[in-house]
Computed example of a mutant assay.
Amino acid sequence: MFRPARSGTSNSWHGTPHWSTCRRPRPSAPASNHRDWVPEEVRQLGPARMLETCYRRLTSEFNSHESSDPAESWVAEDQTVGFWIRRLTHETAIHRYDIEAALADPQPIDPELAVDGIDEILTVMFERGRAARGTDTAPEGTTGDLVLESGGHTWFVRLLPTDVEISREVSREARSAASTIISGEPHDLLLWLWGRGPLPAPNNDDDGGAAAELRRRLAAST
């Protein structure tokens, strides 16, 4: 059974339509026009009913498929229902945090989920924005190599003038040569990557500006 992260209160327009408007897997749907993807009957619902109705429809759709079943996505190598289960789980976790923060009671994101969220924003969401924008118009700014470490996992990020390279493999030499190393608890690092929190402290600094440039490019891409 599909069970996303706890969604917090249900009476927020920000958290409700953003993920819950019944974006169901459509294996045979054409990719040309999604402007009217929100059903008219959903548009007429209030926030609480929208969340309840669409949560029920979405989870029912996920539960009726294997994660390996085909479903359109923007990642060429992952056209599966599992892609959307992962994407909407992280969407829910971040906006759950937003809602709780607005109520002055933010709860930490589960460490295992946050580690996968770090991987997703770097290897999926960042790539999506870059592909949509095109490298010809990518922002030019600070360059450098960064190493991100959290929860026993490591990512290597190379900022080029108009592109970026990301890898889950980090050699000892690459780590030693990196201009910036960012480490922190999974929750803290994930929130920083999504612009919800400060650069994890106290063991990190950004003298060369590479961390700020990474955040700037993430903001432009996500």
Rank of each mutant, 00 (worst) to 15 (best):
S67E: 15
V42Y: 15
D110A: 09
R172S: 13
A76T: 13
S67R: 15
I109P: 01
L189E: 03
L218I: 14
A131I: 04
V147W: 08
Y97E: 02
S67F: 14
E149M: 06
I182L: 14
T180A: 15
A104Q: 04
P139Q: 07
I166W: 09
L189D: 03
A220L: 11
F156I: 02
S64R: 10
L214D: 06
G152E: 01
W155A: 08
T180F: 05
D119E: 14
S64Y: 01
G8R: 02
S176Y: 12
S73G: 03
S150G: 06
D98P: 00
R216Y: 08
H90A: 03
L191M: 06
R26T: 12
H34Y: 14
V170S: 05
L146V: 05
G8I: 00
T222L: 13
G141W: 02
R57S: 08
R35M: 04
A132Q: 15
E52F: 04
E127D: 13
S32R: 06
L122E: 07
S32F: 08
H153S: 10
L214A: 04
V170L: 04
S73I: 01
W84E: 09
I181K: 13
R35N: 05
E112M: 07
L51A: 09
L58T: 12
G209Q: 11
V115P: 07
G208N: 14
G141T: 02
H187W: 00
P161D: 15
D98E: 01
R24D: 12
E127Q: 13
T222I: 10
I182Q: 07
V38E: 07
H65Y: 12
E66P: 07
D188M: 03
M50Q: 14
R216K: 10
H34P: 07
A76N: 12
V157C: 04
H18F: 13
G129N: 04
I94N: 00
Q79Y: 10
R168E: 08
E213H: 07
V115W: 04
T53E: 12
